[in-house]
Amino acid sequence: MTRFDGEEAAQVHRHLHAHLPSDPALRVKALESLLVERGMVAPETLDAWVEAYSEHIGPMRGAQVVARAWTDPAFRERLLANAAEAIKEFGFEGHATGNLKAVANTPTDHNMIVCTLCSCYPFSILGMSPAWYKSSEYRARAVREPRKVLEEFGVSLDPEVAVHVWDSTAELRYIVIPERPAGTEGWDEARLAAIVTRNSMIGTHRTLTAEAE
């Protein structure tokens, strides 16, 4: 699915060889040095954040949560009642999402998440949001015409399936619990987690399959 993007590669190349950083990079550098001097942020905290979000924190965290919800009915109940509390048992390092709501798909209901204001997203369990999630087009259209947006993601819903669009805020983020696919009976959590896609936890992918590894 990922393809070579010549312009992107050229951009990275230019970035590596240009001596003077770009205008926004210099603005960030100015802010960082001032905030560090004032003691508002510690350089090691910033380094740890960047390393964590570049290397360690990603959708595999959310996939583990979904897999457990599929295999442990009591956990699923706790997750749907209070997701932030329920995911504590995973012991994810770093601060997890403080206020999190899990919404479960069923044969008659489909959930999808958006942030119409900016880009609120459950970073601590899904990693960085995809570029399209942050686009103004998705932020506007996900609410206005969710079925059409879903079709563009390749999700065709029967008319009787209700679509629920959840607008994330700074205070409350969402994760979609997709339906467990048929043919996965007896699978353990790790094997199940491997078939859970990031988009299925945002709600722009609906039907997971046992083969999609």
Binding site: M1, A63, A131, V149, T197, R198, N199
Partner: peptide
């Protein structure tokens, strides 16, 4: 823009 660009990792 709405390509399901998605893999787990």
């Amino acid at each position: 823009m709405f390509k399901p660009d998605d893999p787990l990792k």
